[in-house]
Design a protein around this nucleic acid. Sequence first.
DNA 1: CCTGGCTGCTGAACCGGATAAGTGGATAGA
DNA 2: TCTATCCACTTATCCGGTTCAGCAGCCAGG
Lengths: 340, 340
Amino acid sequence: MKRPTIADIAQRAGVSKGAVSYALNGQPGVSESTRRRVLAIAKEIGWNPNGAARALSGAPSDTIGMVLRRPARILGVEPFFMELISGVEAELSARSYALTLQVVADQAAEIEVYRRWWGERRVDGVLVCDLRVDDPRITALADLSLPTVVVGSLGEVAGLVSVWSDDAAPVVEAVEYLNALGHRHIARVGGLPDLRHTAVRTEAFEEVCRRLNVEPALTIPTDYTGEDGARATRRLLSSPRRPTAILYDNDVMAVAGLAVAHEMGFSVPGDVSLVAWDDSVLCQLVHPPLTAMSRDIPAYGGHAARRLLDVIAGGSVASLQDVAAHLIPRGSTAAPAPRA
Amino acid sequence: MKRPTIADIAQRAGVSKGAVSYALNGQPGVSESTRRRVLAIAKEIGWNPNGAARALSGAPSDTIGMVLRRPARILGVEPFFMELISGVEAELSARSYALTLQVVADQAAEIEVYRRWWGERRVDGVLVCDLRVDDPRITALADLSLPTVVVGSLGEVAGLVSVWSDDAAPVVEAVEYLNALGHRHIARVGGLPDLRHTAVRTEAFEEVCRRLNVEPALTIPTDYTGEDGARATRRLLSSPRRPTAILYDNDVMAVAGLAVAHEMGFSVPGDVSLVAWDDSVLCQLVHPPLTAMSRDIPAYGGHAARRLLDVIAGGSVASLQDVAAHLIPRGSTAAPAPRA
DNA sequence: CCTGGCTGCTGAACCGGATAAGTGGATAGA
DNA sequence: TCTATCCACTTATCCGGTTCAGCAGCCAGG
């Protein structure tokens, strides 16, 4: 089956390629009757615009890109990313935009992909996640002037629009809550230390603990995986000054931590209270259900996608501070048992 | 920053566009010294091939497509799809192929997307999921002769390569296992009735139940969502002849069913045994952990992607029967309590 | 010395649209 | 009646590559 082109339509309609192009694009320059005839023929012979040809003439690709830098097989069990992507897709599909995903191994490869996409005009813009404390992607993308929206926790990045939520306030809320329950020894299982939002959370955690006299405010860094979260939990629960409450930087680690607590014979929340960050179904399904810092991640992704489309459209777009996560108390937190 | 083209390279190198094209593509027709000079200049000025221009001359897009027909926001909590996609990505990213996802509302829209992608040469091939009993997508894709691999439970579909796994054997395995434990009244919470693999499972379920004298072999159809699974479970557990074991067609429904059992005061596995299909982390994290029909979904996706790349490459590719799911017994199944 | 073949390159057509510039005819205004 | 304007097109060019035909220049063989 040969793909019909506007030349085929032109021949059938007895007009020139140019006229067909005007007709199909709703441009002035053809009579209403000719336009109708052209449209009818186009439909009849099943014509579709050739994106490559359009792109060659400078048209957008109606695709946005997202590069994920993590082992591809991990993706399936990473609720945050999947919910984010589903929110992005919801926004995009409503506008017939497509999403191109590419998984890469390291930062150099990620920048290389941006460069290639830009050179190939394969995407109209990109969403960037997991901002590092000092992130070379920012300058690279600025150099390319590829429309970009940063998804992550920060106000402004040199000229780039970002969609972010306050990471400090939820930490404060959680620690104050635990403190009010009577906890005086709270530890945290943090994410990758060089991610910006991890740094923000760590600082907020240390500050609120200092203020409330909850010391030491120990944060154990992890790579966000369940395994690392389990390891950190095991270490915390084995220490001589065992914390009575643990904050986790994501839900996967919190769930893994809960399993460790059970495995070591500690009761939750009797012996130790647990708080998760990000509230996927996981948190609600385990026993006891986990108290969590909840936010609407699909909405978050949707906002980011919307902003990116606005940037692509050329509007002057302001960064958006999305609603911060807020504490949803469930069965994994309670007052600490009086120490023997 | 203006994107460099081969014309820029040609000018710098003092040769023609054609020579540059040959040099860059490793084609014969230029001397080794010229080739090296051209490559050096290309690298120096940061040249990238323009995919649109290449595509216009018939080059592949190095992208495969996948259309998902379900509410976008559901995706994030649908472990099967996310694991499948992560497996596909793992295979693709190793070959620098990209994956384009598009979420649509209905079948007509899905076929329309295929047609558009084909017309626009936007993808080199597609992966098709969730085959229906009588599926118009098959003929549509055959008409377009768009390279296609069907992911799902069936042997051969008119000329299309498929990657599938036996859906009947695991059902038999599960029912025989439950029967051996002493269960004589087993119900099933099934998926969408017009999906092919649902039909296969339903038939296998009814047949093995008949053979083992486990009657009635009731299957309640659902739309695969947790809510529907909960509803079906509530109905089963409220019926006068309450089943002592329930088989679920996915993990989300099984987990939801477990919550319903708890909510209604039934003990699992004391009062009712539960078996999930597809074994994501969900099943291992709930209490009790769910006995599940487990299979390596990322590997499944990887095989499908690999097959699709082979089809695109033009090889004669055979369909692949992947390993079937097999039963992993966990805490949610036990012998039924003797009836009062 | 002429012919034939090979090497290494050039020039131009081509892919399928978008679009600026040009054209012929009808119409309106002076 | 002559010009200006507009309409509805056509023609030609461009986008950035790929590819094919052609063409010098060189070398080998007869």
